[in-house]
């Protein structure tokens, strides 16, 4: 169970494409602008479904977020040379498939720092090369692959639209809650917190 974040101690449950759930700290999750826009102020009942991405990818993304919680505030893209040893290890231990999955997930979750480092890493593959050398570094997709990519992007856009609509619906409900008498509002919040504690003790 999840609840609105007020401190870094709060944990949120994340659901992957396999249906597995794992918890992520509120502080780490708040690095995702998508999360902030959809759930931060209104909370979420049950695990947050990021079901377009598998568990390994999401864990990798949130591993990065957990690590950068204590780093200084993000101040725009860094050059690859400025990356810490930890950052370099983080990227180096990924194979290409995982790297692409991480970029896609980071892009969807809108985690600025991670997305920007991923972009810089890709740019570095191309930097200082001429056309001939670039062609050796990148794979040029077939027409079928491009068509498939377009379909996936359309599907994702539709899914994101659905999530946004759901979030808007929840926000409307929250607004209704705000109109309730204070006593009733306290009781509702208490019920939510109880559900959250029960959820953690069950684990």
């Amino acid at each position: 169970m999840t609840s609105p974040a007020s401190s870094s101690e709060v944990k949120y449950l994340i659901e992957s494409s396999e249906g597995n759930t794992f918890d992520v700290s509120g502080a780490a999750l708040r690095q995702s602008n998508t999360f902030n826009a959809m759930f931060l102020n209104i909370g979420a009942d049950g695990p947050i479904p990021f079901t377009d991405y598998n568990e390994a990818t999401l864990k990798k993304v949130f591993e990065y977020c957990e690590h950068s919680v204590n780093e200084e505030n993000y101040s725009g893209p860094k050059h690859q040379d400025d990356l810490s040893k930890w950052d370099l290890n983080f990227f180096n231990e990924m194979d290409q498939k995982m790297f692409i999955d991480v970029i896609n997930a980071s892009n969807f979750l809108d985690i600025e720092r991670l997305t920007s480092y991923c972009c810089e890493r890709i740019a570095r593959m191309l930097r200082g090369k001429n056309t001939q050398e670039m062609i050796k570094v990148i794979t040029l997709p077939t027409a079928e692959e491009l068509e498939a990519k377009q379909k996936v992007e359309e599907k994702k856009a539709a899914a994101a639209k659905k999530v946004a609509e759901k979030a808007a619906e929840t926000a409307e409900k929250t607004e209704t809650l705000e109109e309730l008498p204070v006593q009733q509002l306290v009781q509702t919040t208490r019920n939510k917190l109880t559900r959250k504690y029960l959820s953690f003790s069950n684990e």
Binding site: T115, I122, T139, E145, K149
Partner: peptide
């Protein structure tokens, strides 16, 4: 191995 650049989302 060659990197599938065009498989990345447009924003990236």
């Amino acid at each position: 191995s060659p990197f599938p650049l065009l498989r990345l989302p447009g924003v990236i």
